[in-house]
Amino acid sequence: MRPQDILTPQPAGLYCKPGDFYIDPVRPVARALITHGHSDHARAGHGRVLATQETLDMMQLRHGEGFAAATQSVRYGETLTLGGVTVSFHPAGHVLGSAQIAVTCGATRIVASGDYKDAADPTCAPFEVVPCDVFITEATFGLPVFRHGDAAGEIARLLASVALFPERAHLVGAYSLGKAQRIIALLRAAGFDAPIYLHGAMDSITRYYQSRGIALGELRPATGARKQDLAGTITLAPPAATSDVWTRRFPDPVTAFASGWMRVRARGRQKGIELPLVISDHADWDGLTATIAATGAGEIWVTHGQEDALVHWCGTRGLSARPLALVGYGDEDAEDALPTTASAEGGS
């Protein structure tokens, strides 16, 4: 069977005909396999959902009980047979519970990697290379200008700034699911043991991470803290909150934003960021190209992001590559990074 007959892009998402299921569908379907808990991949309203336990838990946290008619959890490495194919889930290193989904039909194996990163992350299982014939890769940071570097170095810059401006609060915009917890864990690893403050929107997901055994130290709600007590502290908040009236409770806040987009200066300036931190939960250019090579796949399908450059690169390596043109997926940070009239108004 040709690979495109095993997995086919359709308006609802990537469809597996021989197995009769979709991967990360953007519309309600009868049977869905979900790579990870981010909202553009894990939507409510499907019939049956197969995912890792963490991803199922996150979907329930976000959408409530009954987000799907039935659910089934799967462990990393476990093999299941669905119709004419076998599927298995493998760590994607993106966020807690994130998985690449390998679909094997006869002698052909296709790996849909969802979102992934090959960089170290203390809050989730490390990315595993899954040898395959066709590798489906994201391309969020699919340009050679995106090199994320060492996240610990960025954390050191944040801590140096806290030391230099002890009378100011440091407000770090970070996506609520995954990025925020990773930043906290990195701060702890760097020896920062003071309480870390959280925006209310991050509370439940962060407590969920702690319930899964991820040590994050003492966390406090930013709401209710006295302004003068927030001097010299670090607070994590959803990126949109760092530019609205919510920030007025902080003494002269230094606005940081942790995202791979912060590599490009205009992105940070556009948002009025004072301390851009290049920390991403997606693979950078070197990560994308190294992973593609490591899978041994001869055929590469590129989903959302900067497809052109990655498809071109594959061509120069003798790999057959094409963009999949799936719609409905984005980068969680990029959505937050869009300047909104609403948040600009909030400050007036």
Binding site: P144, V145, R263, V264, A266, Q306, D308, H312, W313, T316
Partner: peptide, 21 residues
């Protein structure tokens, strides 16, 4: 690669910054 450079320059918009990155 000239194509990768052109795509990158187009995205970043600043020569020094593109090359630095």
């Amino acid at each position: 690669d000239p194509v990768l450079f052109a795509l990158s320059y187009d995205y970043v918009g600043d020569l020094s910054e593109t090359v630095a990155l």
